[in-house]
Each structure stands twice: as structure tokens, then as C-alpha cells.
Computed example of a mutant assay.
Amino acid sequence: MTFDPTTLKFNDAGLLPVIAQDADSLEVLMLAWMNAQSIQRTLDSGNVTYWSRSRQEYWVKGATSGHHQELVDLRYDCDRDCILVLVRQTGPACHTGRRSCFYTAVRNGAEIELSKPMQD
């Protein structure tokens, strides 16, 4: 069966949440958004392409930072309303310079910083 991105269940803005996960370590790296065209661009190029809600434009991860995400696998959930991309991440995934955007935990009521920015 051929995959058709338009069969996914997009929100009212035409977007789906996308979780990026490291294909080897399985570390959750970030959450972003895709529309049908960014999904197709990702599948065609092998470079993960998101939709930037703030800039209202396509965003190829790493195009300006050099911190690329090479697509290993693209999956969607049972409700067809969320995407998981397994990637090979070059450098940090987070705009703060950290490997993952999920670097803060809440433990015993306190915020704990789990990682510092990566060194270039």
C-alpha cells in the first residue's frame, strides 16, 4: 500500500505534532510540527523538514545550524494524529545547544537541569 500523508489526522491548522527520537540511543530529542508537504519533503529528501509555526515556513533541521537530522524511520501512531521520526542527529537538537530539548525535570517539586549545552 502506498503511503499518502493527507490520510493523517491533522489539526485545524493542518499540522501534526512530531517527536524526534535518536535512532540508536532512543533518546527523545525534540517536539516540532509537520504538515502534509513537510512530511513528503522529509520522505523525499531524507532530511527531516518541519513546519515553523512562528515563521510560517518550512524548516529543514540543520539548514542554518549544521545540526542535521537524517531520517531513519517515520512512523505514525494508531490514531494517525502524531508522528515519530527516528533520526541520526548531528550535534545538538535543541536551539539552546543541548542534545535534547527535554533537559529539565521536576523532582520533589523542584526543577532540575539535566544537561548543559554541548561544546562545539
Results as ranks from 00 to 15, higher is better:
G66V: 03
D24I: 15
E27D: 13
N47E: 11
W33D: 00
R41V: 09
Q37L: 14
L26A: 13
H67Y: 08
V28Y: 04
S38I: 08
A93K: 06
L43D: 04
T49Q: 04
Q37D: 15
R80K: 14
A63I: 08
V48W: 05
Y50D: 00
M34D: 10
M34G: 10
W33P: 01
E57T: 15
P92V: 11
Y76T: 04
S25G: 10
V87I: 13
A93R: 10
L84P: 08
V85L: 03
V72F: 09
W51H: 04
T42H: 05
N35Y: 03
V87D: 00
G91W: 11
I39Y: 07
G62Q: 06
G91L: 10
I39D: 00
G62E: 09
G46I: 04
V87P: 00
Y58G: 09
T42M: 05
D79N: 15
C94Q: 09
R80E: 07
V72W: 08
T49S: 03
C94M: 11
C78T: 06
K61G: 03
N35P: 00
L74Q: 11
E27R: 13
W33I: 00
S52C: 04
L29V: 07
G66Y: 07
I39C: 02
Y76G: 00
D24R: 14
W59N: 00
S38D: 05
A32K: 06
K61W: 01
L86S: 14
D77E: 04
E57I: 11
M34F: 08
C82A: 15
W33Y: 07
Y58I: 03
D44A: 14
L26N: 09
L86E: 12
C78H: 02
W33S: 01
M34A: 12
I39H: 01
K61I: 05
M30T: 10
L84Q: 11
R55L: 04
R53P: 05
V28D: 09
H67E: 11
Y58Q: 07
D77Y: 00
W51T: 06
V87G: 05
R75D: 02
C78W: 01
I39L: 03
Q56S: 09
R41L: 15
V87A: 06
S25W: 03
K61C: 05
H67A: 13
L31M: 14
T42C: 11
V48M: 05
R80M: 10
T64W: 10
R75S: 01
